[in-house]
Design a protein around this nucleic acid. Sequence first.
DNA 1: ATAGCGCGAATATAGACAGCATGTC
DNA 2: CTATATTCGCGCTAT
Length: 793
Amino acid sequence: MKPTELSGLPAGVGEHLEGEGVEALYPPQAEAVERGVTDGENVVAAVPTASGKTLIAELAMLSAVERGGTALYIVPLRALASEKRAEFERWEEYGVTVGVSTGNYESDGEWLGSRDVVVATSEKVDSLVRNGAPWIDDLSCVVADEVHLVDDRERGPTLEVTLAKLRRLNHDLQTVALSATVGNAPEIADWLDAELVDSDWRPIDLKTGVHFGNAINFADGSQRKVRVDSGGKQTPALVDDTLDEGGSSLVFVNSRRNAESAAGRLGGVTGDHLTDAERVELRELAADIRDVSDTATSDDLADCVERGAAFHHAGLSSEHRDLVEDAFRDRLIKVIAATPTLAAGVNTPSRRVIVRDWRRYDPEFGGMKPLDTLEVHQMMGRAGRPGLDPYGEAVLLASNNDTKEELFERYIHGEPEPVRSKLAAEPALRTHLLATVASGFANTREDILEFLDNTLYAVQSAGNAQLESVTDTVLNYLDANEFVDRDGDTITATEIGHTVSRLYLDPMSAAAIIDGLRDAEGDDGSREYGSRGAVDGDPDESSGFVTGNDLLDDDPLADTEAEGDAGTGDDADDVSALGLYHLVSRTPDMYQLYLKSGDRETYEEELFERETELLGRTPSEYDDVAFEEWLSALKTARMLEDWAGEVDESRIAERYGVGPGDIRGKVDTAQWLLNAAERLAGELDLSNVVAVREAKKRVEDGVREELLDLTGVRGVGRKRARRLFEAGIETRADLRNADKSVVLGALRGEKTAETVLENVGREDPSMEGVTADADAKRAGREEEEGQASLGDF
DNA sequence: ATAGCGCGAATATAGACAGCATGTC
DNA sequence: CTATATTCGCGCTAT
C-alpha cells in the first residue's frame, strides 16, 4: 500500500511521506490501516521497536485532525516528548499544529487547547484531567506510546487510570496503543476494545546471538568469529570487531560504576580507530562536556569522549546526555556503555548492541536477578540504524556453555512476559482514588468500583476481590486524613483533598507535610491534627541554632556543616530550612539518597546535633526501617541545604556520592514539594508559609538568602550572583547603578556583563571601552581558590 | 622504619514523573 | 553452585 493511496489524511501528507522515502507502508502499518486506524478505530499495535510504530500513530492522529478533531500523544518520558514534538512538527506545513506539555516544559493552557496535536507525559495528562483542562473533553484521538509500561509498579497505574478516564470522558475517543511485543497483547486489545496488530516484522533484519569462546553464535545458526585476546575480555573484542566494519556499539551494563569503568576501558579500543579530524571534534566535544558541570563525573566523561567512548546513566545531567546521544548518532562517539536509561529513552540506534550484564542486583530478590525478557528485547531493539545498516546485531555474552544455553532459552527463543496491571497496590490507589473522587468521576464506593472496571486490572482479575479490599483500606486512609468526607454512601473530596489532588501529591506525602508543618506550629494548640506531639527538648532551642551569618564575612562559601540557616530568622515560630528539607525528603514522593555504610554513623551524629530543627518526632532507633529512612531523609536534606548554602557542585557530588544529574533531580523534586507545602500551609492558615517560601526560593536558585534579589535577574545564577555580591553589588538596584568596570570584573566576559545589565533593566548596557576592575576580578578569583582548597574535607 | 606489594575480604549496586511562572532555540 | 569491579585491610618483604 502506497502512502498516497491512503484516504482521510490532510492534503499533501501522502506525498510528503513518499518524499521521505516511504514507498510502501510496512506490513504492520498496512494492517493497522486495514483495521481502521485512519477511520477512527481503536487499535493496539504490538510490534518491535523501530518498525514504524510512530507512523501508525501519526496516521491515526493526522486523520483525526483531518476530520476536524484533536489528538493527544502520551509518552513515558519528558525527553521523548520533545523528540516526538520535533518529529510531528514536520506536519505543520500541512496545517497541523503541535504542542508539548510536560512538567518542566509548560505551554500556556489556552494555547495548548488550540493545538491539533499535543504531546504529553502520562502524569501531565493525569494532572490536566485533575485540573479540568477544558480541551481534554474535546479530544478525538489518544495515542499511548509504550503502553506495556502499565506493568511498572510506580508509574504504570497512572497510565492505566488516565486512559480509563479519558475514555470515560469521551466515549467516542479513538484509542491507539503502541506496545513492544509482549506476552499478552490480545488482553491489552481486549481492555481497550481495540483491533490488534501483533507482529514480529522488522524493517531491518535483527540478528540476535550469544558470544561465547571465540565466536558469536547467531539464532539463525550462523557464526561469526570474534577472537578474544588473552585477557579474556569479550566486550572490547566485540566493539573492536564492529569498528573494523565501521560500525558503532552500544553496551548495556548493570550499574553506573560498571558503565563508567567499561567506557574507560573501551576508550582504549576506540582510540585506535579515530581519524585526525575526529580527534579534533572529540576534543571540542570533551570541552563542552567539561563546561556543563564541574564534577568528577563530568571530567571522567570528557576523558572517555576524547577517545571516542562514553558512558550514559542517570547521574549525568541532561545536557551531558544530549551531547553524548547526539555525538553517538553522528557516529563521532563510537561506543556507549550504558545503564538501562538508554534502552527506554530517545532513539539511539547502533550497528551492534552488546548486552553484557543480564542480571542486576535487586535487594528484594536478595541477589542478582535476571532481567525481564521484555527489557532485554528493548535493549536489543536498539540494534540497526534504518537506512544506514544492512542489519542490526544484538549480542549477549556468555562465559560458559550453560550460560549460553540459558541466554538462548530465556532471551532469544523466549517469549516476553505478559504485562500485568499493578493497580491494586495501596500507593497507586491512594493517589488515584482521591483524584477520581476529587474530579467527580465517582462519589460512592460503588461508583469507584464501577469506574475501576474500565482498567486493565479489572480485565485481568475477574472475580478477584483484592481491588475491592484495597479500595476500602485506601478510602479509610483518605477519610482518616480528612482528604475525603463520607456522608452515608456519598464520598466527596474535602477542600484540602481537592488541593492535594490538583497539586499532584501522593496523599501520604501531603499528610506528612501537613503533619510536620502543624507540628512546627508549636503550642498554639488550636489545631490538633493527627499530631504526634511537639519536638522533644527545650522549646527555646528551636530558634537557637547558629544562623551562620557571621561566617559570611570571611568566606561566603564556607562549609555549611554547622549551619542551620533559618531564612527569615527572628520569628520564634519559624522553622529552619533544614527542617523543611527533611520534611519533604521523607515523603514518598522524594526518592531518597542511599545510605552508605559509613553514613549511618555520620548522620546519627548529625541527627543528634540538629534534631530540634526537624519537624515531627524521630522514630525509635529500634524501629530499624523507619529510623533508617529518617536518616537517609536527613542525608538528602543536608544535600539540599548544601545546595542552598552555595556549596560547589563538585563538592556536593563528592560528599554525597552522586552525579550532577542526581543533584538536579533532587533539587527539582524539592522545589516541587516545597511549592506544594507552601500551598498547603497557605490553605491551612499555618504561620510558616513564609519560611516555606523562603526555603523553596533558596533551593530554586541554589543560594543563600542575601543573594535572592540578584538571582531574580535572568542570566544570573548562583555563581554570578555570588561574584557580584563579593564585588559589593548586593541588589538589583546596586546592579543598575554600579560602576561598569566592577560589573565586568565580577562577571568576566563583556557579552555576559552586557546581557546581565540589559536583563536588570539598565539603560546603557554597552560594555564598550570598559576595562575590568581589578579588585572585583580578584574577589572572584579568591573565591574560586577558596573553593578548590576546600576539597580535602 | 617504611614504602610497596599481593591477596582475600569487604563494599556497593537502574531509573525519574509531578506545580508554578517565565522564558527559548 | 553462579556477579563483579573496585577498594580496603592486612601481613609480608625489600630497601
